[in-house]
């Protein structure tokens, strides 16, 4: 396959960026999207140019590092996959592909296609955990979880925190991410004690990070590589309204570094 790539190049967060065009003449349809970029980079290095920086790690769709806006769609044209699991057979010979980084003020660009997604880490830090002294490992079935709740918790826990939801959202809202994390622990018995505090803290942190507000469009769920449902947002709203009316105040808001 012969492809033309339109890639966003930006030296760092402070420098202006622009699209640059690259030819990719020898692309195998069996390559993953990231392998295709590797090949382009090899060529750039041989020519003494700066290779395209992009985030990646496991390359098997479970780490949440890859983060490419491909032809205006987060993770590209195929539903339910990350960019690393997207294969070049999803494109046609002679295509021009536009590749951009995630686009949201709370995700500043580090370089080229790599963005700083620490905002998500701080949302988790503010309440996305269970604090209980566990002692030695308990028996596997000491705390019983009904199968349907276990399934729902697992569906929400499938979120890999890649940020595609924010990138796809016209409001750059992080509510699908925050909702998934709140729902994942809220469905389990171990998560009940801190359920109200968790909702208040994580939503406060999300607002403090400067993410937008949900208008229930659903682009997030449509691009989510783990196909997280909008239900988690409704659940987060329910948890937050309940927690607020109970008088729970935010406690764990983490300082947002200046950008």
């Amino acid at each position: 396959m012969k492809l033309t790539l339109n890639v966003w190049r930006q030296k760092n967060g402070g420098a202006p960026g622009a699209f640059k065009t690259y030819e990719a003449p020898h692309v195998s349809p069996d390559m993953s999207f990231l392998e295709m970029l590797d090949v382009v980079n090899e060529d750039l290095i041989l020519r003494g140019e700066d290779p395209i920086a992009f985030d990646h790690d496991c390359r098997e769709g479970i780490c949440g590092m890859c983060s490419l806006m491909i032809n205006g769609a987060a993770h590209g044209p195929v539903r339910g996959v990350t960019a690393c699991q997207l294969h070049m057979r999803s494109f046609s010979d002679g295509d021009t592909i536009t590749i951009e980084p995630w686009r949201a003020a709370p995700f500043p660009i580090i370089k080229d296609l790599a963005t700083d997604r620490s905002a998500f880490d701080r949302i988790i830090q503010s309440g996305g955990f269970i604090s209980a002294s566990t002692g030695s490992a308990p028996d596997a079935n000491a705390v019983q979880v009904p199968k349907n709740f276990a399934d729902l918790a697992m569906d929400a826990a499938a979120c890999i925190g890649c940020g595609a939801c924010v990138a796809a959202c016209p409001n750059a809202s992080a509510m699908l991410f925050a909702g998934a994390k709140i729902a994942h622990l809220g469905f389990l018995p171990q998560g009940q004690a801190e359920r109200s505090q968790r909702a208040i803290n994580m939503v406060s942190q999300m607002d403090a990070e400067g993410f937008g507000s949900c208008t229930n469009i659903g682009e997030c769920s449509a691009v989510c590589p783990k196909e997280i449902s909008l239900d988690v947002i409704a659940r987060m709203n329910r948890d937050l309204i309940g927690a607020s009316l109970k008088g729970v105040e935010p406690t764990g808001v983490v300082a947002v570094p200046a950008k």
């Binding site: 402070g14 769609a73 951009e100 660009i109 400067g210 682009e219 449509a222």
Partner: peptide, 25 residues
């Protein structure tokens, strides 16, 4: 206003959006 601040991340590029986002809804 909150959403536009988050979404229109012009940064130093002065470009409002890189490319038109695809709509699926």
């Amino acid at each position: 206003m909150q959403s536009q601040k988050s979404a229109y991340a012009r940064g130093v590029t002065k470009v409002k959006r890189y490319e038109k986002k695809q709509r699926r809804t």
